[in-house]
Simulated assay, not measured.
Amino acid sequence: MHLNLERRESVILSVHPHNDRGTGIACAELAVLAGAERVEGCLFGNGERTGNVDIATLALNLHAQGVDPMIDFSDIDEIRRVVEEANQIEIHARHPYVGDLVHTAFSGTHQDAIAKGFADHRRRSAHAGHAESEMPWDVPYLPVDPADLGRTYDEVIRVNSQSGKGGIAYLLAAEFGVELPRRLQIDFARVVQRHTDTEGREVDAETLWTLFCAEYMPADGAADSTSARADAIEPLSRHRSAITAPERGRFLTVLEWRRGDDRGWSAGIGASEDEADRAASAAARRH
């Protein structure tokens, strides 16, 4: 249509979408593709009835595709605070880009994909010799880097009864530097599942660490530890991590073992790898 207007150069073709059918963003983007030069909207979709088209979502959709929207959302939480105060309307926790939960994954499959995406982003950055913030963003389920909006990565992965081994392993690695082998991830995920099913709420990294210690580092006297039982333990594999949290010991060893028909895992902490190995073996004898 706009190509057939007389004196087209003198016309600013503007669109004013509302969101009554939930298509405000799509209508605005299609209108721009069809020749519209201006979109009229409101921050976070405020407006009559279901609201005008959300300017923030439009702009950040462009940003996600590598197009500079020329609007600064680098402190989106402060913008949200001002809008909520001015309008006296709370923004929904799942509102695109600005809601409290938009960068948070509880589902196990989503957590696993995000954790792998972060690892690949770090790998590509190291390979290219660039800072991570300078690399193209390509992490599943996160259309933009939360840091571009002034957010941190602390809330990206949270654990509740829906979560799987990937999210649990990610939090332990991120908070404590503890790298769990895949088979232990599966075993520990069952422990966490029992806890979240019983408690009915999400768990943080500190709670995960407490559960891990209770399960794989039983206290002295927790079980029979006679020498006859100790001699029956056959170590199958060892995995070591340097613990990064300052209040913890320096090294963690996780030990996979077999005793007759039984297989299990134990763990130990020490100031050296040898000390951690001995602590893990002692924990195995107490199982």
Rank of each mutant, 00 (worst) to 15 (best):
W257D: 08
E85T: 07
I243V: 15
H121D: 05
S163H: 11
V39D: 01
R278I: 12
E206Q: 14
N87T: 15
E275N: 03
E206M: 06
A34G: 05
S237A: 15
S133H: 08
E234S: 06
A279K: 10
G22H: 05
E215L: 04
A228M: 06
M135S: 04
R194F: 12
H110P: 02
A31N: 01
R123T: 07
S125I: 03
F73H: 03
A242P: 07
D68K: 03
H127S: 00
V11K: 04
V203P: 03
S10D: 15
P136V: 03
G177C: 01
I71C: 11
L33K: 14
F212V: 09
G117A: 03
D148L: 15
A56M: 13
P17N: 02
A93I: 02
F118D: 05
E132Y: 10
H287Q: 13
Y97W: 15
Q185E: 15
M217V: 10
L13F: 14
P246Y: 03
A147I: 05
A232V: 01
E256N: 13
A174R: 14
A276H: 01
T50Q: 04
I243Y: 11
E84K: 12
R182E: 15
I114T: 11
T50P: 00
N160Q: 07
G166P: 06
E6G: 13
R201L: 07
A267P: 07
G129W: 05
F212L: 06
A280V: 12
D54C: 12
P96L: 04
W257I: 05
D112G: 11
D277Y: 11
E199M: 13
